[in-house]
Design a protein around this nucleic acid. Sequence first.
DNA 1: TCAAAAGTGTTATCCTTACACCCATGT
DNA 2: ACATGGGTGTAAGGATAACACTTTTGA
Lengths: 341, 341
Amino acid sequence: MSPMTGQVIIGLSTVVVAIRDHEAVVLTVRPDDLRTHRASAAPGLPSGPFDPDHDRTFELALRAFVTAQAGIELGYAEQIYTFGDKGRDAPLADLGGSAPGAGRIVSVGYLALTPGTADLPEATGAGALWSPWTRFFPWEDWREGRPEVIDSVIVPDLERWAAAADPVTAEARRSRIRGLFALDGARWNEERVLERYELLYEAGLAAEAARDRSRALGTDAPEPEGFHPALGQPMISDHRRILATGLGRLRGKLKYRPVIFELMGQTFTLSSLQRTVEAVSGVALHKQNFRRMVERTDLVEGLAVFDAETGGRPAELFRFRRELLLTRPATGLALPMLREG
Amino acid sequence: MSPMTGQVIIGLSTVVVAIRDHEAVVLTVRPDDLRTHRASAAPGLPSGPFDPDHDRTFELALRAFVTAQAGIELGYAEQIYTFGDKGRDAPLADLGGSAPGAGRIVSVGYLALTPGTADLPEATGAGALWSPWTRFFPWEDWREGRPEVIDSVIVPDLERWAAAADPVTAEARRSRIRGLFALDGARWNEERVLERYELLYEAGLAAEAARDRSRALGTDAPEPEGFHPALGQPMISDHRRILATGLGRLRGKLKYRPVIFELMGQTFTLSSLQRTVEAVSGVALHKQNFRRMVERTDLVEGLAVFDAETGGRPAELFRFRRELLLTRPATGLALPMLREG
DNA sequence: TCAAAAGTGTTATCCTTACACCCATGT
DNA sequence: ACATGGGTGTAAGGATAACACTTTTGA
């Protein structure tokens, strides 16, 4: 029972981001809990097959199965990328496909944001739970300064990988490493999440790389279980790549579209807004300049209501002027950095 | 012979942009010339099916069929979007599919840029030719100031469409019209090409809208032939939507990635660089400030060689410092506008 | 009274925008 | 000489980045 030539199965995978306790978290599912009931360390993103006979659009399909898999209603959603490379595509089992070994799977990745920082259920549907993205990309969190794992583990390993190649390739690899991991005076660019993950994958440092290699050789390797904490928690299939794409896209989009407000509740303080931007961008921001910048954009409106729950002086509550989306959807928030290096 | 449930056909469509005589042109094909040999006014983008059994990646597949259909070797290529909405998908005939009426088609759109402004062949492969994008989106060209067709045709038609709805909807529509077409002091945002095209489609002003409507009703409408020049040349299938997406993406990307140089030859003058940016962005730029901005980015290097072919004083030739891509891929060219309104 | 968090003021510096103006070539 | 396009100088105004400082609460 081979598939018709030219046909593929489309898998939809969604990066669902929310804020919990001032930390950015993503929705993950344990595929094994859902199907084989075997324990496994590698989680996945909520995902499911696209059914061309019943689903009118990708977005409708994905809203439906995220609700089914995790009991979450999505707010904002946007497409991020379509992955079709052979060898890195999702194994059929991950999607519960009914045609084992039959066709090729193409993943359409989506980014979704859910508002309301307060009462996020810890574990929602069967096996669904919120995980801080820092678990998957520890090197991406620069809020407390340059993460120590970069210089203690990542760069030495990458350097060994670079040195193993012929001189010309080695120099090109070193140049990528320098630029992506802010070496030798290069500045950290928080948007390049995917490129950094791809570099680690290429260098064989991402646990998924070893799995994909052995799979290509015919040995049906299980999803990786152990992993070096500095190199992040691996995920099934190509889900960590999709997550990296989503996080990078969100970090970039923050700056030119008012998407950050899709993660906030109806009202918020400027400090909580700043902590949200910091949690997503992974950089520390300059408090005073952040406030001034936000007020200059006119995207928010003070409510002259104060929240005394914050510990110190009560903070004024603001709301997002959502009505501006119709006329000025093309403004975002700059990142007035703290600590320039 | 119905397809397996959950399977679809993937069509790859590519927006290929080049510069000819200081104008931005896109590669188009006449599908009818290739198959039925019937004359038709509606061109399409170079496109073809993705064969999961033979194509390792989307990009390899698309480079192959663009070369086959138009004799062009692509340089830079990036994915732009994947379109899967029912009712606006490509009819099978457009792809030469072998399973009439069988499945659903999902279009993966790509943007490709080809360098070398000089000797572009006029018509390359069978039925392939370069068309200025202004033919498809006349309202997007603001280089000579606000295009007259906006106020003489487009806005009045859109206003009639808005007025036909209930008061609440009508006000929301007017708000979108104002923001997208720079009415009442709103400033023109050259990046929002897709949103403007979608507005015209929704309002029934894009010729493709009538075609899709009658197709949904079962009447097998032909691709539209006549069209109002102010509303642009229609294309087959959803190709004009893909083109709008590509143009918008390119206009945005210019500003934060050095992609514009993928359209230039090995050496160029600053004026020709400016004319290229203007042709793509559709806005007039301030000459002196453009030069200063380019030089400050350090993306180009003067060669101390002069080109006397330009008419006046000979212009210095520059080259793109391509080696910077490894370390600083995240800089682009700002748009120092001329004529702020 | 002190810690903690909110919020204000001020300054040097850089970038943007807008002017006016000079330079080198072909006809 | 003058038209044409290439190229420079300079100054106002706004944004950014970096300071130090005051205000209001709870413990």
